[in-house]
């Protein structure tokens, strides 16, 4: 299990920077858990993905009418912004 667990790639996908120590610790924790959940692999399952419901009670989605409802004010929307200017949220550059 642990040899195919590429912690660096997973951390990148999850957007969390990890120190080497953390990588090692988390890899070994996760290996233990993954070994445990391996119990599922012996389970015979024939359920088709189309038979899988998102809702545990197998309810279906209800759609909402296209009618405007009051929203947050501009100030409320920005009230928690770590950095804002001219009514916009500001972040370090995101260009590739």
């Amino acid at each position: 299990m642990s040899e195919k667990f590429d912690i660096t790639n997973i951390a990148k996908l999850a957007s969390i920077s990890l120190s080497d120590d953390e990588k090692q610790k988390l890899s070994s924790d996760l290996s233990v858990i993954l070994d445990h959940v391996q119990a599922l692999s012996n389970l015979e399952l024939d359920t088709n993905i189309e038979d899988v419901y998102i809702h545990p009670l197998e309810k279906e989605l209800v759609l909402d009418q296209d009618v405007e409802k009051p929203s947050l004010t501009h100030d409320e929307a920005l009230s928690n912004a770590p950095k804002a200017s001219d009514g916009k949220f500001i972040v370090p550059p995101s260009l590739e």
Partner: peptide, 18 residues
């Protein structure tokens, strides 16, 4: 919108409108 001159080295910040 990217403030600065384009490439990442020269861009100073990005502003966001949602």
């Amino acid at each position: 919108s990217h403030e600065g001159t384009g490439r990442i080295d020269s861009a100073t910040s990005t502003s966001l409108d949602f």
